[in-house]
Computed example of a mutant assay.
Amino acid sequence: MAMQGGNQPLTVTNLNGEAGPAVVAPLLSVCDLSIRAGSLELVRGVSFDLQPGTMTALVGESGSGKSLMAQAILGLLDREVYAVTGSDLRFQGSRLGFDGNRLPKGFRGQLTGYVMQDPSSALDPTMTVGRQIAEMFVVHRGMDMRSALKEAARMLDFVRIPNAASRIGDYPHQFSGGMKQRVLIAMAVALSPRLLIADEPTTALDVTVQAEILALIEDLRVQLDMAVLIITHDFGVVYQCADRVMVMYAGKLVEGGETLQITENGRHPYTRGLIASIPDLDDLDRPVVAIPGQPPRPESSWIDSCAFHPRCAWKAERCLAEAPDMEQLDGGDIVRCFEWPRVVADARP
């Protein structure tokens, strides 16, 4: 299908007016992002790069700050509730900053697409799905509604909704959970963004539909040549689709690297715990080991110690006395753990 406008960014001769190349690597660069709500530090010192065309998974338990981080990057957080700070935010080499009110026109929609966590609450129940998708073309492309509805029908077909042309007049309640998720994806990729952020896109879907949605996102990534950041708490999703993985705990990134490295030889005890808690259908006799305890509450997350130490089997005295910094390793891998060499050594056969 020929996408409206092709996969072209806004005249990215730098979004802030600076001279520079149209496309540079990395696609997205986040430096020292922190989010506070009152006295609570919810995300602290997060830094990472996303490369063009890659699928990256952001993994962690509920409440670890994954969705907040994504919404802060997109400028979607209520600034009366959340204070967002950071050293730098760049997209295709252009410096944007973390002030959501100053993001360039078209950053959300044209350059980035966002699939929200709950399709039932993300879609307007009083509007047909066709008009909700068509608004993307009206607002960003200046189309009239008649032409935009034709594009909306094409988008529904693009995300494999059967009889798409006859369904643009349907309302969200007339679609199943999986079909509503496809509608959200259609809205997010309608303008061929360079980056798609998908927040828990398989939550509350049965296993078969989950696999279909993940396959759809992967196909769209290839067809549109876009990068994807998929937020999940399920390492099963990571195994299926991700090139790289970032693991988040208590508001901090604790590990990152290529998927094979993380899943086969993770260095952080929390990563090991997440993987050990996944049932192995090929070895039903292997016990499923849950991570003991609970994640720390936000008001206790930033004491001068490793936030994971109360749940960690490898903790040492140093872990109780100071917080580890992020360590850069060969190949672009990162880990935040004093004891990671011992973790790796203990896991060897």
Score class of each variant (00 low, 15 high):
M3H: 14
G6W: 05
G6Q: 10
P9Y: 12
T11Y: 03
V12F: 03
N14F: 01
N16A: 14
P21V: 05
A22I: 08
A22F: 02
A25F: 03
S29F: 00
V30S: 09
V30Q: 09
V30I: 14
C31G: 01
I35G: 12
I35N: 12
A37I: 08
S47Y: 12
D49P: 02
P52G: 07
L58G: 11
V59G: 11
G63L: 11
L68M: 15
I73T: 02
I73C: 03
G75N: 10
R79Q: 12
E80A: 15
V81W: 08
G86Q: 08
S87M: 03
L89D: 12
L89Q: 14
Q92W: 04
S94I: 07
S94F: 07
R95H: 15
L96H: 13
N101Q: 15
L103E: 05
F107I: 05
F107R: 05
Q110T: 05
D118A: 07
P119W: 05
S121Q: 11
L123I: 07
L123F: 06
L123N: 06
P125L: 04
Q132K: 10
Q132C: 12
M136D: 06
M136E: 12
V138G: 10
V139C: 02
A152G: 11
M155C: 14
L156I: 07
V159T: 04
R160Q: 11
I161L: 15
I161W: 10
P162K: 11
P162H: 08
D170G: 01
Q174V: 02
Q181M: 09
R182E: 11
V183M: 05
L191E: 08
S192R: 02
R194N: 07
L195S: 10
A198V: 01
D199A: 00
E200H: 03
T202E: 00
V207H: 00
V209Y: 00
E212K: 04
I213G: 00
I213T: 01
A215S: 14
L216I: 08
L216A: 09
M226D: 11
V228S: 04
I230T: 00
I231T: 04
I231E: 02
T232R: 01
H233W: 00
D234H: 01
G236T: 08
V238C: 02
R244D: 11
G251H: 07
G251R: 06
L253N: 02
G257N: 10
T259E: 13
T259G: 10
T259N: 10
E264F: 07
H268R: 05
Y270P: 12
A276I: 03
S277Y: 09
P279K: 06
P279N: 08
P279E: 07
L284E: 14
D285V: 06
R286F: 10
R286C: 11
V288S: 06
P292C: 02
E299R: 14
E299W: 12
S301Q: 15
W302P: 01
I303C: 05
A307W: 04
F308C: 13
H309C: 13
W314G: 03
W314V: 07
E317T: 13
L320W: 09
D325T: 13
M326Y: 01
Q328G: 09
G331C: 11
D333V: 10
I334L: 09
I334N: 02
R336D: 01
W340N: 05
P341E: 15
R342E: 13
R348W: 01
R348T: 03
P349K: 10
P349E: 11
